[in-house]
Design a protein around this nucleic acid. Structure first.
Lengths: 228, 228
DNA sequence: TCAAATAATGAGCTAGCCTCATTAGTTGAG
DNA sequence: CTCAACTAATGAGGCTAGCTCATTATTTGA
């Protein structure tokens, strides 16, 4: 038979195929959401049959996991690489907050997916995205612990609670970003989160004022001493 | 016809029926999760037909909303009632944190539902539970604003970020509680969250020490002055 | 070159949300 | 009390969408 009549379809490599599927899934999930993003559409987007997807992924949830995992592994790799070059728990924590916010602000369509399903745990399968959240939390907790050890942070600080607070603030910022569509002022939000965690919200005005006057009084007293 | 042969089934009032349905839904959702908690089982639990549920609720999601709404309205009512009797933004914020943690710790089975679906926003329907979250956030933000106004809190504090941090910390505590099953030490966690928000995590040791020595030096100077 | 292995297909199975024609119970006027 | 109009409940069945599997297509390596 001639090559003109029979066109053998060249099969892409396993990796290419998976990439195509994941990318199609990302597109569909982002534009339609997880529940409404049907496998049928993902298959159409990828130009393959529905069944093919199930050769590479156990379930729709598994596919979502891979989509999220790929998206956030970039963030995670970056942090993992950069962290050693930053000195001091404060700077490192601040960097993690900043970098996460950049990732969030870069791809709004992704946010809805993660905020909704990062905590997917109805079936006990420990999802990849959840695992990544945990790894990030561990990184942060380590910095808090280091800060406590070296005396930078109060010894009665609970590392896990601090992580919860940072993580929660990031998630809710993400969520608000997704809902309102208002762009995130990354530097400003980083400052806000970090300042609140680091210094708290209690005004130091009263203390500062009383201390200032105290110092003044003592300095006057010292002045009176010195000439003598 | 005799009353012995025909047993007319007495119909419960509309309210009773809804109560039964919501309670059955709560049980099923709590034990099986939302996705796996089929309407079929809820109907069976309530001793009615599936179709009856749809007389009172538009959809499964609507039913979930009502379940969550009922569960958390108790918390919300309590806070709404108690708040006016508490003086000062600090005490009020602290109370809200504390009261929320109590509610969380009281019903563990409920937590999974809320953490997963409180942010349900794929269909644009503004869910009741989401609305409640918003109302709580507004209450908290008001206290932060009041605190800034009266000078208790730093003027450069972002009320929304503070709310995100508190809300996030509560949610992640809830989530961790649900996953690990470890009981929450409500007072301890309240302290931890509140202390971090209020005073931050930066150790005041260095400042305190230098100030203490300063005061000492000046006091010695003053002592030397006084006798003279 | 051709069998064995691997990949892809898509019709169809199944589960589960939801609908609707039918049946059951309630109410109020005569 | 009776019956018609109305409201509530039923459950078989529609329909969608995730997933399976027998069949077909392509690749591989002996």
């Amino acid at each position: 038979m001639s090559t003109a009549t029979v066109t053998k379809i060249q099969r892409p490599s396993k990796e290419q195929r998976i990439d195509t599927i994941v990318e199609s899934a990302r597109k569909v999930f982002c534009s339609s959401g997880f529940e409404k993003g049907a496998i049928e559409f993902i298959a159409k987007e990828a130009g393959i049959a529905e069944g093919t997807i199930y050769r590479y992924f156990d379930s729709k949830h598994g596919l979502l996991d891979e989509v999220l995992s790929r998206h956030y592994s970039a963030l995670f790799d970056n942090i993992h690489q950069t962290l050693p070059s930053i000195k001091g728990p404060c700077n490192r924590l601040r960097y993690m907050i900043h970098r996460t916010l950049i990732t969030i602000s870069e791809d709004r369509s992704m946010c809805g997916l993660r905020t909704l399903y990062a905590r997917q745990s109805e079936d006990k399968r420990p999802s990849l995205s959840h695992d990544q959240n945990r790894r990030m939390a561990v990184l942060m907790a380590n910095e808090v612990k280091a800060g406590i050890k070296e005396g930078t942070f109060r010894p009665d600080t609970s590392p896990s609670i601090v992580c919860y607070m940072i993580g929660g603030a990031l998630e809710l910022t993400e969520h608000s970003f997704m809902r309102t569509g208002k762009t995130i002022d990354v530097d400003k939000v980083t400052d806000s989160i970090w300042r609140t965690i680091h210094s708290g919200i209690s005004s130091s005005d009263a203390t500062t004022k009383s201390l200032t006057s105290l110092v003044e009084r003592f300095e006057q007293a010292a002045d009176r001493l010195d000439p003598a």
